[in-house]
Amino acid sequence: MKERDRDGEGRARSARPRDGLGRPLPYGARGVERQPEGVVRTPAATVTEAQRLLDAGMPFHAHEVFEDAWKFGPQADAPLWRGLAQLAVGLTHAARGNAVGGARLLRRGAGALAGHGDAYGIDVAGLVGWARELAGRVEAGEPVDAAAEAPRLGGRPGRG
């Protein structure tokens, strides 16, 4: 039986490299650098780093940044960051060609964010509209390019 990959603290964590959409690659392949886990950032730093990753077509990695904010930031902000993480994962699935999972997570994230007002410069209402519109296009079979569809967290969401 193969020993599981572990991180420096002994937790199970795959050491396989990943591509920009978070798909595992074969051991030894050249992948993109993974986001470190458990990084505590200010809300502004979270938004900046997540936007950089979204713009680079790496929504899976942006989701990890949002996940850190939801798990290690103030509990009152957790629903906001969790909803944003769901949008990033929805975009990831859509870009991977998983229309059902992509649309489902985009709609779930939009629903989670729908009751929130703007916070930390994030255009929550605009993101909700972007996610619902993209979910409809994904369900209609439109291919999705993660970088081209990356939302703007502040200001006008989407590239279209």
Rank of each mutant, 00 (worst) to 15 (best):
M1K: 06
M1Y: 03
M1G: 14
E3L: 13
E3Y: 08
R4V: 13
D5T: 09
R13T: 12
S14H: 12
A15Y: 10
R16M: 15
P17C: 10
P17G: 10
D19Q: 11
G20A: 13
L21D: 09
L21N: 05
R23V: 09
R23D: 10
R23E: 11
R23C: 11
R23Q: 12
P24V: 11
L25A: 12
P26Y: 12
Y27L: 15
G28I: 15
A29M: 14
A29E: 15
G31P: 06
V32L: 14
V32P: 04
V32E: 13
E33D: 14
E33M: 12
E33I: 03
Q35H: 10
E37Y: 15
R41S: 07
T42D: 07
T42P: 00
P43Y: 06
P43N: 07
A44G: 07
A44I: 01
A45K: 05
T46E: 08
T46C: 11
V47Q: 01
V47G: 02
T48S: 11
E49A: 13
R52Q: 12
R52G: 09
L53S: 01
L54N: 01
D55V: 09
D55K: 09
A56K: 06
H63Q: 15
H63R: 12
V65P: 02
E67F: 08
D68N: 11
A69E: 05
A69W: 01
K71Q: 15
F72P: 02
D77Y: 01
A78W: 04
A78P: 00
A78D: 04
P79S: 08
P79E: 07
L80Q: 03
R82V: 06
R82P: 00
A85Y: 06
A85M: 15
L87I: 05
V89R: 01
V89M: 11
G90P: 01
L91K: 04
T92H: 05
T92P: 00
H93Q: 15
H93N: 10
A95V: 06
G97T: 12
N98H: 15
A99N: 06
V100M: 05
V100T: 13
V100K: 13
G102D: 04
G102E: 04
A103I: 02
A103K: 01
R104T: 11
R104Q: 12
R107Q: 08
G109R: 02
A110I: 00
A110R: 03
A110P: 02
G111A: 10
A112Y: 03
A112E: 13
A112R: 13
L113A: 02
G115V: 13
G115L: 06
H116S: 10
G117Y: 00
G117N: 11
D118N: 14
D118Q: 09
A119E: 15
Y120A: 07
G121K: 06
D123Y: 08
D123I: 02
A125M: 06
L127H: 00
V128E: 02
V128R: 01
W130K: 04
A131Y: 03
A131Q: 05
R132M: 08
L134Y: 09
G136V: 07
V138L: 10
G141C: 10
E142M: 09
P143G: 14
V144I: 13
V144M: 03
A146Q: 04
A147V: 02
A148K: 11
A148M: 03
A148D: 06
A148F: 05
E149N: 11
E149F: 02
A150H: 07
P151G: 08
L153V: 03
L153R: 03
L153M: 05
G154V: 04
R159W: 05
G160D: 14
